[in-house]
Design a binder for these strands. Structure first.
Length: 483
RNA sequence: GCUCCGGUAGUGUAGUCCGGUCAAUCAUUCCGGCCUUUCGAGCCGAAGACUCGGGUUCAAAUCCCGACCGGAGCACCA
């Protein structure tokens, strides 16, 4: 009976975590070689959400142990903390691997003593042959004392880069070649951006991550499918040291329709080359870009949590995030007129010099005043469909009758609202020059002066979409959020 | 090539472990209508999916086998 009722429970959001009843310790472990992207946001949000649900600790750990190929960016460490905090996932602890290499050395030595690892002097290509064939290399049977001696030589500089690695003993006959005796430490003499020249022997991800997860008493690991083999590899290390492995959940790759494929290193190049305005350019999928565009963290959290943690690869659309954010932002955003691709419209007759328009259509938030008069701007798109003789309404101003299309002229035709009349918006002749930066390009035009008072806020440009006022000036800069 | 993982509407997702209540959930998108001095919001309605083929069973989205498709790992990257 209980079973039946249990099965009826709909699972909303994230599925329950096995073995989490007494709290969890979870970590988000990025390489700080750029700012967090939407992909990183998934790691930040899901981990922190589980910690919120079950109680415990949410840690951020910088896996920054490659000074060469995945070279960390010193500014990025702070960016991660900043974006985590903005995403309502302030870490309870910050760990930086490059500051803790000495701890990994201790574990390595323990491992060598227990005969769980050996120094391998095979050139990389040679070892690959052994591995593919499934036969132990000549160094595998070295005595633990010999390994310790060679290890010290690695540390003291007796070996050059590439001459020696420390390998964890797994099973050279394992059916999956990816699991066989994997490397734990290699020599890298390039100075590290944070640790400088303090270390010349650096751990590789599988070792660093496995050891840290144990040291930090991580209970549950969420990781991408690309690291699906890591548990199998690291399990051997845990067995050698008699540790207990955390519970692991994998998720599939995530692609975003609107952004296509991207990588942090590619973005970095494009930004350094001036192709983008920076790490918050609306055309790129970073968390800071979303912030600049006026997204609310709740929208992002909700979206990511609804994605769940399936192992299926997914191709998501920003549309869902847009819809979620629109719901949050619509009641807050003041309304303004922005005329893109403006064309001048000359008006005859007693056009009011001022218009009064609601700041919000259905919240009682008062009015804004817009200078009007006999010359105003309208969108080129609107102008194209106007025919002489037609009567339309300028929103919140007056009705007009079109006199001619080229040149564009019209005359005042009354103030009273007439149902059924086509309505267009407009901007004052001496309005604000505005440039809107969009994910798909940019728009330029004229807006009403009140927009300048909304710096940093999200507003709606009527008939255009929601934007965040990014920077005052000539022109004023706005970042487009969504329709 | 070897190894692993996955395939529910356009997109995500629930259901798959423990077969029946699934002629399959929710959201988004699209379409139609209402409302509205925004093409926004809101309201109403509609459309749309179990990859395929076998097998087990009274009964299969759910279990088994095979095929197909997709992804990942096989780095001295993370």
């Amino acid at each position: 009976m209980d079973e039946l009722l249990e099965r009826k429970e709909p699972t909303k959001g994230l599925p329950p975590l096995e073995g989490a009843e007494n709290g969890v310790v979870m970590r988000f472990a990025p390489n700080p070689n750029g700012p967090p992207t939407i992909g990183s946001a998934r790691g930040i949000i899901v981990n922190s959400e589980y910690v919120k649900r079950y109680g415990g600790k949410f840690l951020i750990r910088f896996d920054d142990t490659d000074p060469v190929k995945k070279r960390p960016m010193p500014e990025a460490y702070g960016w991660y903390i900043e974006d985590c905090t903005w995403l309502e996932a302030k870490p309870d602890g910050i760990i930086t691997a490059s500051e803790r290499v000495y701890l990994y050395y201790r574990i390595a030595e323990e491992l060598i003593c227990r005969n769980g690892a050996y120094i391998c002097l095979c050139p990389q290509a040679i070892f690959k042959e052994f591995k593919d064939k499934g036969i132990p290399c000549p160094h595998r049977d070295q005595l633990s004392e010999k390994n310790m001696e060679l290890w010290k030589m690695m540390l003291d500089g007796s070996f050059a880069e590439g001459q020696a690695v420390l390998r964890v003993k797994t099973d050279m006959y394992h059916r999956d070649p990816a699991i066989r005796d994997w490397p734990a430490f290699r020599i890298a003499t390039t100075p590290h951006p944070i640790a400088g020249e303090r270390y010349r022997v650096w751990p590789l991800l599988d070792f660093e991550s496995a050891v840290e997860d144990h040291l930090l008493a991580i209970t549950h690991i969420l990781r991408g499918k690309d690291l699906a083999d890591s548990e199998k590899r690291q399990m051997y290390l845990y067995q050698h040291l008699n540790w207990t492995y955390p519970k692991v959940i994998h998720w599939g790759r995530i692609r975003i329709h609107q952004f296509g494929s991207f990588s942090t290193s590619k973005l970095r190049k494009a930004i350094e080359g001036g192709e983008y305005n920076g790490w918050d350019d609306p055309r790129i999928p970073t968390v800071r870009a979303l912030r600049s565009r006026g997204f609310r963290p709740e929208a992002l959290r909700k979206f990511i949590i609804e994605l769940g943690v399936s192992e299926t690869d997914i191709a998501i659309s920003m549309d869902s995030i847009y819809a979620l954010n629109r719901k949050l932002v619509d009641p807050e955003a003041n309304r303004y007129f922005f005329v893109w691709n403006p064309v001048l419209l000359r008006l005859e007759g007693n056009v009011p010099n001022n218009a009064k328009a609601l700041l919000h259509p259905n919240k009682k938030r008062g009015f804004r005043e817009i200078p009007a008069g006999n010359e105003i701007f309208i969108c080129q798109n609107d102008s194209k469909i106007l025919k002489p003789g037609e009567e339309i309404r300028l929103k919140d101003l007056c009705n007009i009758e079109i006199l001619s299309d080229i040149p564009l002229r019209a005359r005042f035709a009354g103030l009273e609202v007439i149902k059924g009349l086509k309505i267009i918006h407009w901007a004052p002749k001496n309005g604000l020059p505005i440039r809107v930066l969009r994910p798909d390009g940019q728009d330029e035009g004229i807006g009403e002066p009140g927009i300048a008072q909304e710096l940093g806020k999200v507003v709606q440009f009527e008939r255009y979409g929601f934007v965040r006022i990014y920077q005052l000036g000539e022109p004023l800069l706005a970042y487009f959020a969504h329709k």
